[in-house]
Amino acid sequence: MPTTILAKRRLIPGKTSELVLDAPHIAAKARPGNFLILRVNERGERIPLTIADADPGKGTVTIVYLVLGKTTALLETLEAGDAILDVCGPLGAPTHIEKTGTVICVGGGTGIAAMHHIAKGHHRSGNHVVAVIGARTRELLLFYDELSAFCPEVLVTTDDGSVGRQGLVTEALRDRLAADPGVSEVVAVGPVPMMRAVAETTRPFGVRTTVSLNSIMVDGIGMCGACRVTVGGQIRFACVDGPEFDGHQVDFGELCARLGAFRDQERVSLEKFHECRCHDHKKA
């Protein structure tokens, strides 16, 4: 049965939006760290998206996407009241959350939204949550208000210094770690180069570092192995063994290469989509 979009919020116009979906059966089970798989229409591709928030009471789940390929471009054409043909979840192993003290949650780009649900989980279990979020510039910074609502510390960095500290999230992270030896865990969600840099930053501190991987997936339930990643020399499936793994053990180079496996086809698909849309506009 198709899933209705209850609300849409344009976070960065044309680039990033948040959708609130009417999915009580998923909301009831969704835990921080879970993702869902959706297929927009009959000819669509299945893609994974992290669950950015869930409200079991209202029966809703929230997703945030960056417009990158055909599927996200197609999603961006939908409005509140429209429906997504297939939504399946919650998938993946939930984040391991226990009361340990101070947890630093690092987010970059759209990953900030995905990190939000994890940060909330840590907050609810009684941890002191420090959010470290970064973007190129002020307009592209996501979820500052949402995180400020419960995180006692929200450290912001931007490349141009338009808000917060000028520089990278890893610099703010390093200083925060240096100032406080009591940090029990660092969680990072964002682009692969960022997660890799976070893992390298935390390594000398010996602090447990969890990263949430965004591998290419097909079924999302362990049937195909498209999402396989090498962790500590072992093949693991991001969809069922993850998506969260020990950042100090992940082979990021391999992950980066594998994310580019279908780059040519993705370009063809997106170009065709824009051509068709252009055509439709002309006709109209």
Partner: peptide
Amino acid sequence: NEYLTRVNLGRAYAFPDYDTP
């Protein structure tokens, strides 16, 4: 499983009319 699922379930043989590559 991945190869056949892409082609059979995803109809990738009809790419780019179908989106699964």
